[in-house]
Measured scan of single mutants.
Amino acid sequence: ELREAFRLYDKEGNGYISTDVMREILAELDETLSSEDLDAMIDEIDADGSGTVDFEEFMGVMT
Score class of each variant (00 low, 15 high):
Glu1Ala: 14
Glu1Ile: 13
Glu1Ser: 14
Glu1Asn: 14
Glu1Phe: 15
Leu2His: 05
Leu2Asp: 04
Leu2Lys: 02
Leu2Ser: 03
Leu2Asn: 03
Leu2Thr: 03
Leu2Met: 10
Arg3Tyr: 15
Arg3Ile: 12
Arg3Leu: 14
Arg3Trp: 15
Arg3Ala: 12
Arg3Cys: 15
Arg3Met: 12
Arg3Thr: 08
Glu4Asn: 07
Glu4Arg: 09
Glu4Ser: 06
Glu4Cys: 15
Glu4Thr: 06
Glu4Asp: 12
Glu4Trp: 07
Ala5Ser: 07
Ala5Met: 15
Ala5Cys: 15
Ala5Val: 15
Ala5Trp: 15
Ala5His: 10
Ala5Pro: 02
Phe6Asn: 02
Phe6Gly: 01
Phe6Met: 03
Phe6Glu: 01
Arg7Asn: 13
Arg7Val: 09
Arg7Leu: 12
Arg7Gln: 12
Arg7Ala: 13
Arg7Pro: 02
Arg7Lys: 13
Arg7Gly: 09
Leu8Arg: 15
Leu8Thr: 12
Leu8Phe: 13
Leu8Val: 13
Tyr9Leu: 13
Tyr9His: 09
Tyr9Gln: 04
Tyr9Phe: 09
Tyr9Trp: 13
Tyr9Pro: 02
Tyr9Gly: 02
Asp10Val: 04
Asp10Cys: 13
Asp10Thr: 03
Asp10Glu: 03
Lys11Ile: 12
Lys11Leu: 13
Lys11Pro: 11
Lys11Met: 10
Lys11Ala: 10
Lys11Cys: 13
Lys11Gly: 05
Glu12Asn: 08
Glu12His: 07
Glu12Asp: 11
Glu12Tyr: 06
Glu12Arg: 04
Glu12Thr: 06
Glu12Pro: 03
Glu12Gln: 08
Glu12Ser: 06
Glu12Cys: 08
Gly13Asp: 07
Gly13Lys: 06
Gly13Pro: 01
Gly13Tyr: 03
Gly13Thr: 03
Gly13Phe: 04
Asn14Gly: 04
Asn14Glu: 04
Asn14Val: 13
Asn14Lys: 14
Asn14Trp: 07
Asn14Met: 10
Asn14Ser: 08
Asn14Pro: 01
Asn14Gln: 08
Gly15Glu: 03
Gly15His: 02
Gly15Leu: 04
Gly15Arg: 02
Gly15Ala: 03
Gly15Phe: 03
Tyr16Met: 04
Tyr16Ile: 04
Tyr16Pro: 00
Tyr16Cys: 03
Tyr16Ser: 05
Tyr16Gly: 01
Tyr16His: 05
Tyr16Arg: 05
Ile17His: 00
Ile17Pro: 00
Ile17Gln: 00
Ile17Ser: 00
Ile17Ala: 00
Ile17Val: 06
Ile17Tyr: 01
Ser18Ala: 08
Ser18His: 09
Ser18Gly: 08
Thr19Asp: 02
Thr19Phe: 14
Thr19Ile: 14
Thr19Cys: 07
Asp20Val: 14
Asp20Tyr: 09
Asp20His: 13
Asp20Trp: 12
Asp20Ala: 15
Asp20Pro: 05
Asp20Glu: 14
Val21Leu: 14
Val21Gln: 15
Val21Phe: 07
Val21Ala: 14
Val21Trp: 05
Val21Asn: 10
Val21Lys: 13
Val21His: 10
Met22Glu: 00
Met22Tyr: 02
Met22Lys: 00
Met22Gln: 00
Arg23Phe: 01
Arg23Trp: 04
Arg23Tyr: 03
Arg23Ala: 02
Arg23Gln: 01
Arg23Ser: 01
Glu24His: 13
Glu24Ser: 14
Glu24Lys: 15
Glu24Pro: 00
Glu24Asn: 14
Glu24Tyr: 14
Glu24Asp: 10
Ile25Gln: 00
Ile25Trp: 05
Ile25His: 01
Ile25Pro: 00
Ile25Leu: 11
Ile25Cys: 04
Ile25Thr: 01
Ile25Tyr: 05
Leu26Val: 03
Leu26Gln: 00
Leu26Pro: 00
Leu26Glu: 00
Leu26Ile: 07
Ala27Leu: 13
Ala27Gln: 12
Ala27Arg: 14
Ala27Lys: 14
Ala27Ile: 11
Ala27His: 12
Ala27Val: 09
Ala27Asn: 06
Glu28Trp: 11
Glu28Gln: 14
Glu28Lys: 15
Glu28Ser: 15
Leu29Cys: 13
Leu29His: 10
Leu29Pro: 00
Leu29Asp: 02
Leu29Met: 13
Leu29Val: 07
Leu29Lys: 08
Asp30Phe: 14
Asp30Ala: 06
Asp30Met: 12
Asp30Thr: 07
Asp30Asn: 13
Asp30Pro: 02
Glu31Asn: 14
Glu31Gly: 14
Glu31Val: 12
Glu31Tyr: 12
Glu31Ile: 11
Glu31Asp: 12
Glu31Met: 12
Glu31Gln: 14
Glu31Pro: 15
Glu31Ser: 14
Glu31Lys: 15
Glu31Arg: 15
Thr32Met: 08
Thr32Trp: 09
Thr32Arg: 10
Thr32Lys: 10
Thr32Ala: 08
Thr32Glu: 07
Thr32Ser: 12
Thr32Tyr: 08
Thr32Ile: 04
Thr32Gln: 08
Thr32Phe: 09
Leu33Pro: 01
Leu33Cys: 05
Leu33Glu: 01
Leu33Gly: 01
Ser34Phe: 04
Ser34Asn: 08
Ser35Gly: 10
Ser35Ile: 10
Ser35Val: 10
Ser35Thr: 11
Ser35Trp: 08
Ser35Asn: 12
Ser35His: 10
Ser35Gln: 13
Glu36Thr: 11
Glu36Cys: 11
Glu36Asn: 09
Asp37Ile: 09
Asp37Met: 12
Asp37Val: 09
Asp37Pro: 01
Asp37Cys: 12
Asp37Ala: 11
Asp37Trp: 08
Leu38Trp: 03
Leu38Phe: 03
Leu38Pro: 01
Leu38Tyr: 01
Leu38Asn: 00
Leu38His: 01
Leu38Lys: 02
Leu38Asp: 01
Asp39His: 06
Asp39Glu: 07
Asp39Leu: 06
Asp39Ser: 07
Asp39Ala: 08
Asp39Arg: 07
Asp39Gly: 04
Asp39Cys: 05
Asp39Trp: 06
Ala40Ser: 10
Ala40Asp: 07
Ala40Arg: 14
Ala40Val: 09
Ala40Lys: 13
Ala40Gly: 07
Ala40Leu: 11
Ala40Pro: 00
Met41Cys: 07
Met41Thr: 03
Met41Gly: 01
Met41Leu: 13
Ile42Ala: 01
Ile42Leu: 10
Ile42Ser: 01
Ile42Gln: 01
Asp43Gln: 14
Asp43His: 13
Asp43Ile: 12
Asp43Ala: 14
Asp43Met: 15
Glu44Lys: 13
Glu44Ile: 13
Glu44Tyr: 12
Glu44Thr: 12
Glu44Trp: 14
Glu44Leu: 14
Glu44Phe: 14
Glu44Arg: 13
Glu44Ala: 13
Ile45Met: 12
Ile45Asn: 01
Ile45Glu: 00
Ile45Ala: 09
Ile45Val: 09
Ile45Ser: 02
Ile45Gly: 02
Ile45Leu: 10
Asp46Tyr: 03
Asp46Leu: 03
Asp46Glu: 03
Asp46His: 04
Asp46Trp: 03
Ala47Arg: 13
Ala47Tyr: 09
Ala47Cys: 12
Ala47Trp: 12
Ala47Ile: 11
Ala47Asn: 08
Ala47Ser: 10
Asp48His: 08
Asp48Ala: 08
Asp48Gln: 07
Asp48Val: 06
Asp48Met: 07
Asp48Trp: 06
Asp48Asn: 11
Gly49Lys: 12
Gly49Thr: 05
Gly49Asp: 06
Gly49Glu: 06
Gly49Val: 04
Gly49Leu: 06
Ser50Asn: 09
Ser50His: 06
Ser50Val: 06
Ser50Cys: 07
Gly51Lys: 06
Gly51Ser: 04
Gly51Met: 05
Gly51Ile: 01
Gly51Leu: 04
Gly51Gln: 05
Thr52Arg: 11
Thr52Met: 09
Thr52Glu: 05
Thr52Val: 08
Thr52Pro: 01
Thr52Asp: 04
Thr52Gln: 09
Thr52Ser: 07
Thr52Tyr: 08
Thr52Ala: 05
Thr52Asn: 08
Val53Trp: 04
Val53Arg: 01
Val53Gln: 00
Val53Ala: 02
Val53Gly: 01
Val53Thr: 01
Asp54Ala: 10
Asp54Asn: 14
Asp54Lys: 08
Asp54Val: 06
Asp54Tyr: 12
Asp54His: 09
Phe55Leu: 09
Phe55Thr: 01
Phe55Asp: 00
Phe55Arg: 02
Phe55Val: 06
Phe55Asn: 01
Phe55Met: 06
Phe55Cys: 03
Glu56Phe: 12
Glu56Val: 10
Glu56Thr: 10
Glu56Gln: 11
Glu56Trp: 12
Glu56Tyr: 13
Glu56Gly: 09
Glu57Phe: 08
Glu57Leu: 11
Glu57Met: 15
Glu57Asn: 13
Glu57Ala: 15
Glu57Trp: 08
Phe58His: 00
Phe58Gly: 01
Phe58Asp: 00
Phe58Trp: 09
Phe58Ile: 02
Met59Leu: 11
Met59Pro: 00
Met59Gln: 09
Met59Asn: 04
Gly60Tyr: 15
Gly60His: 15
Gly60Leu: 15
Val61Asp: 00
Val61Thr: 06
Val61Trp: 15
Val61Leu: 13
Val61Gly: 08
Met62Tyr: 09
Met62Ser: 02
Met62Arg: 03
Met62Gln: 03
Met62Trp: 11
Met62Pro: 02
Met62Thr: 03
Thr63Ala: 12
Thr63Val: 11
Thr63Gly: 11
